[in-house]
Computed example of a mutant assay.
Amino acid sequence: MPAVSISLRVLAGAIISILTVSGCQTLDDAGRVIGRADLVNDLAARLDRSTELTYSADYQLPGGQHASISQSQDPLRAAYTYPGGKLTVTTDATTACDTTTRKPTCTLTAPPPANAKPSITIFADMNKRGLVTPPVVVGLLTSAALDPDATIRQYDTTVAGRHATCVEVDQLSDAPAVGFDACITSEGALGSFTGTVDGTELEVALSRYRDAVQSDAFDLPAGAGLVDRRAEAGQPPA
Rank of each mutant, 00 (worst) to 15 (best):
V167F: 03
L140S: 04
P176M: 12
D125M: 01
M126F: 07
A114F: 14
A145F: 06
D149L: 00
A150T: 02
T158C: 05
T165K: 03
D198R: 14
V132F: 08
G179S: 06
G199N: 02
M126D: 08
G191L: 14
I184P: 14
I122P: 13
L140M: 13
A144Y: 01
P176Q: 10
A182L: 06
D147S: 06
A160N: 00
H163R: 15
T142V: 14
I152P: 04
T133V: 13
A189F: 08
N115I: 07
V169E: 03
G139P: 07
I184V: 15
S143V: 02
P134M: 09
T142Q: 15
N127S: 10
L141A: 11
P134H: 10
V136K: 09
V169L: 09
L141M: 14
S173P: 00
M126Y: 05
L131Q: 08
T196W: 01
C183G: 13
T200G: 02
D125C: 01
T200V: 07
G139Y: 11
A124P: 02
L172Y: 09
R129V: 05
V136R: 13
G195W: 12
P176A: 13
G195I: 11
A116Q: 14
A189E: 07
A144M: 09
V136A: 10
A177D: 07
V178I: 05
V169P: 09
G195A: 08
P148Y: 05
L140W: 11
G130M: 01
L190S: 07
A150C: 05
T133D: 12
A145I: 00
R153Y: 11
N115S: 09
G179A: 11
I120H: 13
Q171D: 15
T185W: 04
R129Y: 12
R153E: 11
S192T: 05
V178M: 03
Y155D: 04
K128R: 15
P134W: 14
S119Q: 15
T151Y: 04
P134V: 08
C166M: 11
P112Y: 01
T151V: 07
F123R: 05
D156S: 15
